[in-house]
Design a protein around this nucleic acid. Structure first.
Lengths: 154, 154
DNA sequence: GGAAGGACTGGTCGAATCGACCAATCCGGT
DNA sequence: ACCGGATTGGTCGATTCGACCAGTCCTTCC
């Protein structure tokens, strides 16, 4: 269920050099190319590597506003609420949560007026009782996974 | 600052077929290969495509617990707090926020006991006054970017 | 109206990589 | 001691990349 030291170095190196070939990757890691090939296949099969696709940033695509919206849902209407949220493309991910709120949504928008529209659209669902919006004013630590990989494998 | 229809189809196709070559990609999109090549270069230069590296899932790497921790920071000690958070590998991203809290952290852990340790480590910084932890109990909508790309370009 | 610049097209070229094989070796667990 | 999985080091053909090139189309500017 976890990753070993070679897996960690492999993932870190692949992320640092995205276009690297298996041949040079094996050279950097100090192992045979077949080994690298087998490891990558396993990591992909186990779901450690979700995909190799390009990482698209919403900011770059014209959505500079980021907000976290927590929702309180009417009893027994969770699925109905989730279906409504799924239909909003600006909602990037939704988690069921512990605590005061029931759902937590990561939302992006082209601007603050559009953010207001999106929140209004969320509230339009009768399953949603209350919303609480937190706007991300600044990025203090950009998303990173390398330190975790080092900690998990080193 | 935005993306056009061809950019949108390009990104969606690249994410759907990560290992696709420029040749077949151009064929699928119905444009010349040189065009695809130029578009990809521009999207990368503009930051729309952050990287081509593999997407590593914390769950797969042995960190099944996901939580959002909001922090209240002592006046004028924001940078000090951020430095402390940076040193914790399980903290994947941190945003400065509006509202009651000052910072919002995305945290992963191997288990709930370790999560408690991480929160304790966060509170160990004198710049951090109060924490409020929300655990993600379920994934209602997994992270997605394709609907946004369709909306942005279509 | 005409000129200029950029984007797109369709083609070719050599270098490099991939993915698949193979037999031999190493290591841990039974 | 034995067995099986993992790793190694090597080769093979097919595919792709990245760089060229000249020509056409469209938009913008003079």
């Amino acid at each position: 269920m976890s990753i070993d030291e070679l897996d960690g170095r492999l993932l870190i190196t692949m992320r640092a050099h995205p276009r690297i070939g298996l041949t040079e990757l094996a050279r950097l890691l100090g192992v045979a190319r077949g080994t690298v090939q087998a490891r990558v296949e396993k990591l992909t099969a186990r779901g450690v590597i979700a995909d190799f696709g390009p990482t698209v940033t919403p900011e770059g695509a014209g959505y500079p506003i980021l907000a976290f919206v927590s929702l309180q849902i009417a009893q027994g209407r969770l699925n109905e609420a989730v279906r409504a949220l799924e239909s909003v493309p600006e909602i990037l991910e939704v988690y069921g949560t512990s605590g005061q709120a029931d759902l937590l949504c990561r939302v992006v928008a082209r601007g603050t007026p559009e953010l207001q529209e999106i929140i209004a659209r969320i509230l339009a669902s009768p399953a949603v009782q209350r919303t609480d919006t937190t706007i991300a004013l600044s990025i203090q630590v950009p998303y990173r996974i390398e330190p975790l990989l080092r900690a998990a494998s080193g």
